[in-house]
Amino acid sequence: MNLFRLFGDLSHLASIFILLHKIYTTRSCRGISFKTQALYVAVFVSRYIDFTYISVYNTLMKLFFIGSSCYILYLMRIKYRPTHDPSIDTFRVEYLVGPCVLLGLIFNYQFTVIEVLWSFSIFLESVAILPQLFMLQRTGEAETITTHYLAALGAYRALYIPNWIYRYFTEGTVDPIAVTAGLVQTGLYLDFFYVYFTKVMQGQKFELPA
């Protein structure tokens, strides 16, 4: 464990608390893509069912991410269902899941169910934010709290990059699948980060140019 990874994980934790806070305080899941949230459940379930014991920290985090992502689906689907507008959440997820299944079958460290699922989850995570970003693009604006959620989520994978560089020099390990997918994942946030830093951080509303 190094600081980059720790702060990455903390940023991931923070993003979930920000999202819950947004849903609770506005009593609404407006502006949140149900599809992206459902993809995260698929990501965590397929990655964390390996039951390999690493550490208490690792196990607790895994349980938390599975539990909280399912809980968010419950909030969106049942508790605050009327506040979700499916007509703007129109990204076709099958275009993401299909290729990720294929990539997982082709690129993995061992051709076993657990390892293929692990690779699949890494690839799927890298693109799971697309329905959310697509929705943002369609509406052209977002509540500030929603942008904080996205920024924390983006910072999580961004912080994993210096972590991998650090691990390469200190442990001599490289995980090419995670690194490739992680770079793609972080790259997808670049446009968002640009608007976030130039507008939201300056106290302005998140609005995309028409």
Partner: peptide
């Protein structure tokens, strides 16, 4: 270089 074993990252 080797691949980290056991996927210790989240």
């Amino acid at each position: 270089t080797e691949v980290p074993v056991g996927h210790d990252e989240l």
